[in-house]
Design a protein around this nucleic acid. Structure first.
Lengths: 208, 208, 208, 208
DNA sequence: AGCTAATCGAGACGGTACGTCTAGTCTTGCG
DNA sequence: CGCAAGACTAGACGTACCGTCTCGATTAGCT
């Protein structure tokens, strides 16, 4: 039986130092050139401390990025809901385009994806800690649109979300085309055509 | 000035051996654990021969996979065109789902993506040698649909293609959900709603 | 000022456990591969307990071996004295040869010497606790021989002892030659020639 | 089967650098604190190069010291032979005492002995490369003394050598007593008594 | 009998060095 | 000259221990 470390004795100081160092180094040198050795040195921590609490380089980086997101600005989790779905979505997608253009996001997010692609366990943790909550917030907005009759009530929201986000995300990840505000608008428009309520359907109105 | 090797003297035997070894090893151990050293050993080739002709591990792997695709079964490049767009697309997307389920494709394609995400130069080569031709074939089918009035004539085909493929691809790459034939169908149906010709528009009919 | 531990509160249980574990491990894995960590684990003792009471790995090992010797079979300290110096010495030296051939002695004694060679403080403690008493017993036998007129009265007994033991000890320690009973005999004979009373000298006879 | 390196391709430059660095570091920090890592760094050599050509830290140090001795001042191998055995031996032993008092010799020779004590293979190499040739030179002097009738013709020269040197060597190694010129003289005198030709024996004279 | 201070087992910590592995360069000898 | 082979410098890997530093939990004397 393998000896398990005792989490109650874990040094919070070291944990923070490691995550911060990982964050900094991913931004500075990118994921491929990132070494556990460098993280330990920068954090002023023994290598064993990293190996004790994280299972791989990927786990450290994932944790570093997710911890940042979670402890971040109280979660900009909720999407705007002005009642105008098209305007709201365009605003969100344009913001996403802008975010992806920020070079400070580039390295960490690419690092995250490199990990997730190759490690199912990390992918699961990523989804549970970051992707699922964010997706849920997005689906909330779509549900609101369904109630308002702006979105087909029968549509699978997971699929709808993919239809809306995957094109943008893939274009950025694989650099398969330019990411412009106009692109965001066009994507939203196409998306709305796809999820528009069917002809005969009625907006759902709550009975009094 | 750096000495450039003379391509006319290049050993085709070594080239093939390296690409084959790279292909095998990527399938066997995955991209992360792949080493130039192992490729050279498996290929019975000096390391220098690899460094002489390829710029990075990623370049070897990309070349290995692309060479396979290119020299493959004369390219099933063309998409089916029975005149029934929905049926054709569902067939293609279901085939894609099946392909992604094949574990023999898993490692190489994930390797390819790992490279492309982190190296713009490789991404460009990948697009030029593999993605662009394939996309062109797909767009040919969509253009045919436009001519048949089954697809809005104003739609940006690049965006349309992304709308159709990115959700499927992303779901596989990030393992964010199950990939089933039903999923493929639902995706095609949503896609078709998005690109359906607008109410007032007329199908373009070629003048006689 | 450094805090000194209070010896009255020392756990005898732990002390014995550490010394026993050290003894066992030295025999099993040799001195070079011996670690404080392993001693503590085997003894069921915290590492700090070792560091509190011993100054170095060498000190533990020295203590372990010396404690064994001291608490041993009431010390076969005294040498035989039948009146026949040559016979007595040959018996002792042959016994020493046999002892050195016992593999159970090998590891601990080599460990002891490794320490002593490199650490003057340990060397001093070793001499005080083990070597000096033993040497004194040997010198007693030689003094008895001097009184019996079998050994030159002027001879420096420390030097004589070295003449007798160092060749044997060195041959074992450096493995510079075979250790046989015949060797022991030859050594004793040569030694006796060296320390035989000078021609003109008279055996000291106690006046009545 | 383990791959063996090809000695014809060995870099003499690296070999010398390693041995020199090892020599310096042993003198500076002592054997216990010597690390392969430090040797490699000082020598400007990859660690693998050391592991490729030497089997252990001890082997490097042994090689470093022996190489120095071998390539030294054309070997002060031969002992003085003035015809006066006592004077010659006293001179040699006093010189040895002086040598041992030189702190520059201290660390390397103790290092050597630490190794030899614990590793039979190194002990064998040490004897073959250094001890045996030196002993042979010493025995040459003793043989000369035998021919001159100053030393018993029947004496085992290996044993005689041990009788003469082991006391001195052991006293130094174990720090069991002071090393003075007087001690050297007393040792030689005792030695000579032990190996003096027996009463009835005649000096061997070559027949004409 | 309860208090309190030190020792105890345990083990996490910042580190150093280990011995192995691979990167990318350089050298040697064959074809 | 390209090639297979493989030695080279460099440095990261993941592991083992070092000696120090908390943690509670005993375990003594001392009041």
């Amino acid at each position: 039986m393998v000896k398990q470390p005792d989490p109650t004795r874990r040094s919070e100081r070291s944990r923070q130092a490691v995550l911060t160092a990982a964050r900094e180094l991913v931004s500075e040198v990118g994921y491929a050139k990132l070494s556990i050795e460098a993280i330990a040195a920068r954090a002023g921590v023994g290598k064993q401390t990293i190996y004790r609490w994280w299972s791989s380089k990927g786990a450290v980086v994932l944790d570093a990025i997710l911890t940042l997101s979670e402890s971040g600005p109280e979660q900009s989790t909720e999407l705007p809901d002005t009642g105008d779905l098209e305007a709201d979505l365009k605003a969100v997608m344009r913001a996403t385009v802008a975010e992806f253009a920020d070079p400070a996001f580039e390295n960490p997010i690419r690092a995250l994806n490199t990990e997730i692609i190759n490690d199912p366990a990390l992918a699961a943790e990523y989804r549970a800690r970051l992707a699922d909550p964010v997706d849920e917030a997005k689906k909330d907005r779509l549900r609101s649109a369904q109630r308002a009759g702006q979105l087909d009530a029968e549509t699978d929201l997971d699929l709808a979300l993919e239809l809306l986000y995957a094109p943008l995300y893939q274009r950025w990840l694989l650099r398969s085309g330019p990411l412009t505000p106009e692109y965001a608008d066009a994507l939203v428009e196409l998306f709305l055509k796809a999820v528009r309520p069917s002809a005969g359907a009625r907006p759902r109105v709550r009975k009094r």
